[in-house]
Structures are given as C-alpha cells and as structure tokens.
C-alpha cells in the first residue's frame, strides 16, 4: 500500500478521469490491468450527452478532445458504481456549476467513494470546469464547502490554462483539499484545411499526451515549491521515465490517461519498469519526490558562477 492524499493506493499509478471510466465494467478492466486506483469519468448533477462530434482528434504528439462531460448524472451512475469490483480504490470525479449541484452529487455518492476528485479544470464546457476553476476565491470557497459535507478525502484537479497555477493550488490547499491533481488538458484547436471548419465539434478542446508533459512537469514543480499537501502529476505519461520525472518535480503519485491508447497494459508495464529502476538505484520511490528541488536552483548556481568569474577578473 502507498499513501497519498489520505488514501491507500495499491500503487502510485492511477487511471486519469475521462479515460475508460464511464462504466463499472470498464473500470474493473483497468483495475485488473494493474492500476493503483481508478478515477471515474466526471459525474454531474444532471444527464449530459456531451458535445457533437468529432470529440477527439489524434495530433502528432497527443490528442485534442472536447468530449463535453457526457454523463448519466449521479442518480444513474450508481448502477455503474455497483458493478465496480473494488479491486483498487475508487476516486469519483465530480463537476458542477455551483455549490448546490456539487453538494447533491457528493451526498449521494459518498458511500461509494474512497475519495472525490473535484474537476475544476475541464477546458471546453461553458459554466463548468476551468470557467469557474480559474478563480482562486471560488476554488477556495467551494473546496471548503465540499470538505464540510464529506468525510472522504478531496482532491482538486487544476487547470493549466491560467497565469499562475500555484495561486489556484494554494486556494485549494487553503480550502482544505487533501491533494491537488495537476494538470488537466491544455486548451487548443485544429482546423480542417479543406473546408475551414474547426476539427472539433465544439470548436476548441483540451490537448493531452506527450505534447503537454513539459507543461505538467512545470506545474508540479511550481506547486511543490508552494504547497504542503501532496501533488498528483498528470500529463503525457507513457513510460516509467515520465513517472520518475513527475516524482522528481514533486509529485507523490501520477495519473495516466492518453497513454492507454498505445498500451492498455500500461499500468503493469510501468510498474515493473519502475521496480527495475528503483532496485538498480537501490532507492525507494518516495525518495524521488521533489528531488529536482534538492539539486540546487540553476539560477542560484549561475549567479554563483558569475560572481566567481567577477572575482577572478
């Protein structure tokens, strides 16, 4: 067992929200393929069909999606939760436009969740996700309100589509979040050169996959400098070295989403590669958390060097 954000994970590799998480049997399949925990598709207060297609475009280095938060509402999602085999912890991702929507969802799904992940970061649905999750005051207040009504751990998923993600992270921590998850997808679009139509039905969407790994790493790195609560790293993880990078930047666990496209056995594969790496180095995974911060700040180092040079002159 591996503790992170007040839950005992089977291992630190977690299925990210929105990926094969809309049915109980699909979650079971990923749990059986070695995930340390699974996060459900984001669940709302009312049914949503999602955006018209195309909802997903493969780009050179990742995926651009605007699926549009389709979900059966918390009422009907219970059917799926009842099918879940509990082979690993279950984190229920939730979204809402306001306190009353979120309260209803949390109260009704409380008994099924090992933790909640508050999606304040979906980049392509008006009035939800990052529309409200980019305001630190809202984030702090809503986090505090939800903490009041649930005993379960609460993770807050952050959007990278802001000036300074640490402001949102600090707001979540001040509101009482047990962990932050960074990052959600990065806003983007593509255009059909034949017709001029945007390639996504929703015009714009969120970029995931290898292309956003440096953005995710930078976010985790910055958050680690400012937060006390654990950080779960997400964005472009496809192999064990990506996981190590996120840990070194400051993550205590990671979520994997788009990486499943090439390899549904990605959790088992990364786990075994990680074990090999750690055995060879003779270290524990926890020792990697934030390692880059202990290697000295490059800027300080450069300042020191120029001072030495000046002295020599």
């Amino acid at each position: 067992m591996y503790e992170c954000g007040r839950i005992d994970l089977r291992n630190p590799l977690i299925l990210a929200s929105g990926i094969l998480g809309s049915t109980g049997s699909s979650l079971n399949r990923i749990a059986n393929l070695g995930a340390g925990a699974v996060v459900t598709k984001s669940i709302g207060a009312t049914q949503r069909e999602g955006h018209p297609g195309p909802v997903l475009i493969k780009t050179d280095t990742g995926f651009l999606n605007a699926v549009g938060l389709p979900n059966p509402s918390y009422k009907y999602f219970v059917e799926e939760l009842n099918d879940f085999n509990r082979d690993c912890p279950l984190i229920i991702s939730i979204f809402g436009a306001n306190r009353s929507e979120l309260t209803k969802i949390v109260e009704n799904l409380e008994e099924y969740a090992d933790a909640f992940e508050l999606n304040l970061s979906c980049p392509h649905v008006k009035g939800y996700g990052m529309d409200i999750g980019k305001d630190p005051v809202f984030v702090e207040n809503i986090t505090r309100e939800i903490k009041k009504i649930t005993k379960k751990p609460l993770w807050v998923k952050l959007t990278p589509n802001v000036d300074d993600i640490t402001k949102i992270g600090i707001a979540a921590e001040n509101g009482g979040a047990d962990a932050v998850v960074a990052i959600n997808t990065v806003r983007g679009m593509r255009i059909d050169t034949e017709s001029g139509y945007p390639l996504l039905g929703n015009v714009y969407g969120g970029l995931s996959g290898g292309a956003i790994k440096p953005i995710g790493l930078m976010a985790v790195y910055s958050l680690y400098k400012r937060l006390k609560i654990p950080i779960i790293g997400v964005g472009g993880i496809e192999g064990y070295k990506d996981v190590i990078e996120y840990f070194m930047a400051g993550a205590r666990a990671v979520e994997i989403g788009s990486g499943i496209y090439n390899n549904t056995n990605i959790f088992n594969d990364i786990k075994s590669d990680l074990d090999t790496y750690l055995n060879k180095k003779g270290i524990k995974l926890e020792e990697l958390v934030g390692l880059v911060h202990k290697r000295g700040d490059t800027k300080e180092c450069n300042d020191q060097k120029s001072k030495e040079r000046e002295q020599k002159c």
């Binding site: 929105g18 995926f63 499943i260």
Partner: peptide
C-alpha cells in the same frame, strides 16, 4: 461511438468492458 480510438469508453460493453 464517440472518440473511435478506445479512449473515452462510451462504447464499452458489459461485463468485460470490451470497447
């Protein structure tokens, strides 16, 4: 079928979660 690439899960069938 929404994403068509086996990622979103909208077309999963029970009980094996086949896409």
């Amino acid at each position: 079928i929404k994403c068509g690439l086996g990622i979103c899960g909208s077309c999963s069938i029970d009980p094996k979660g086949l896409r």
